[in-house]
Nucleic acid binder design. Structure first.
Lengths: 241, 241
DNA sequence: CGACTAATAGTCATGACGACTATAAAAGGG
DNA sequence: CCCTTTTATAGTCGTCATGACTATTAGTCG
């Protein structure tokens, strides 16, 4: 038996532990993912999820926050949404050695600049729909992350994490439509969002945003609620396992 | 930066990777958890979740299945529900060394015998409500597992995994009430379950079980569906984060 | 000024759900 | 043997959430 009683330095195999991040954003009605291009074998030239080793004195969560700041080039990433997805540990997932990775899903609200400074290997935003095969098992991780985010939009207020501090209901609806890939009825979406206490609250200054054509929309900001009761279910999705 | 490019044997700290299992069952209207008593320091004499090291040639899932069979003493554990919960990686969670654990939640349908054979350190079933402080961070893992199972009852057919192959609707309702700790209205529960296609299907032989007092109940078995649309929400739980 | 666009305000029928009441089929006690 | 207790099953009723629409308002663009 391999119970954790009386650890023997040689009773177990040491593994490398990494974190991998699936960072999403919604820009111009498209869902985008932060990716890095691999420079070395294996999978040289392929795109991969940003990530890195968990350091000796940090947890996987701390490593994920650190990587999130490093890869996006943003100093203050507090306030972003970051949650653990699951852990991928198949023995052959990295051909070089045994690597166990803790995957995270993160949301970037305000579309940041494509790629900032001088670092050539800086991460880039790519359209979720136009992503070819990724390195390692990152296709699966990304698919799992997408499914998780889509599911969480149903029963949490997560969608506001995709939006800037102040947003219109049209922008919020676009988040849902972009992540789910389904159009929603605008009046019904409005009614549902406004009927959920604490989901959004109107910006008091009677502020209105005049972006382009059409009637200017009222501005809202995220409310205090975190859960949606009852949930805002995806349409036409009958039996979803 | 700590990107996974060009692994150096000494660029990372090796961690021990374990699995920990929160195994639930419903027996006689009480929720019970499989626990082992620790014989050594640290936390000697305390109860802990069963678990063990991930072996060099197996994934965390395979390790969890192996541990599930070992700790319960049941040969064939296929068919049981086992799912990954999340990974706990705080540097100080094991005082001896750096251990990253992948936690799993499992369900045992038919209440197995309290503890089987000769092994003195065999795992035992304890009432969920009467569980003192566990070893390590297992209190938190157990709480997370309980919350996950309770949430999954809402929107999946998971409850049938707590029941034997053939069961009455009263038994199924007792699963919900036991895990959630809330009484449910029997006629409404019936209506909801029977109205969900594929949740349960009646046993064809017009079979009826006469257990004790009262009118005998019809027998059902699990249907083909896995998801519940719309979900069966917990009552009186307004804003749940 | 008028077409176009987008936001906002309704309407209406259906379905799901909570709170009940009523009936049926067994066991057990006098 | 009847009557009470117990549990399963059937049905009712009002409310609320929702999907599918239609209508109105307030701006830009030509």
């Amino acid at each position: 038996m391999t119970t954790p009683e009386g650890y023997d330095k040689y009773a177990f195999e040491p593994f490398a532990v990494t974190v991998d991040l699936a960072v999403f954003t919604v820009r111009a009605g498209t869902l985008q993912v932060l990716l890095v291009e691999r420079g070395q074998e294996p999978y040289a030239g392929r795109w991969a999820l940003p990530g890195g080793f968990v350091l000796p004195e940090e947890s996987a969560e701390e490593a994920a926050w650190r990587e999130l700041a490093e890869e996006t080039g943003v100093k203050d990433v507090s306030g972003l949404h970051l949650e653990q997805l699951r852990t991928y540990s198949e023995p052959g997932r990295d051909p070089r050695m045994r690597v166990v990775t803790v995957a995270f899903a993160a949301l970037f609200p305000d579309p940041p600049v494509p790629h900032g400074g001088g670092d050539a290997a800086q991460a880039q935003w790519l359209r979720f729909n136009a992503i070819g095969p990724l390195a390692f098992d990152h296709d699966r991780i990304l698919a799992d992350a997408h499914e998780r985010v889509g599911a969480k939009l149903e029963y949490t207020c997560l969608a506001t994490s995709f939006c800037p501090a102040e947003f219109t209901l049209g922008e919020l609806q676009q988040v849902y439509e972009t992540v789910w890939g389904t159009p929603l009825d605008r009046p019904n979406f409005r009614r549902k969002v406004l009927a959920t206490p604490g989901f959004v609250e109107p910006v008091p200054g009677a502020a209105r945003l005049t972006g382009g054509r059409g009637k200017p929309a009222a501005l809202y900001r995220a409310g205090g609620a975190t859960a949606l009761h009852p949930p805002l279910l995806r349409p036409t999705t009958e039996g979803r396992p």
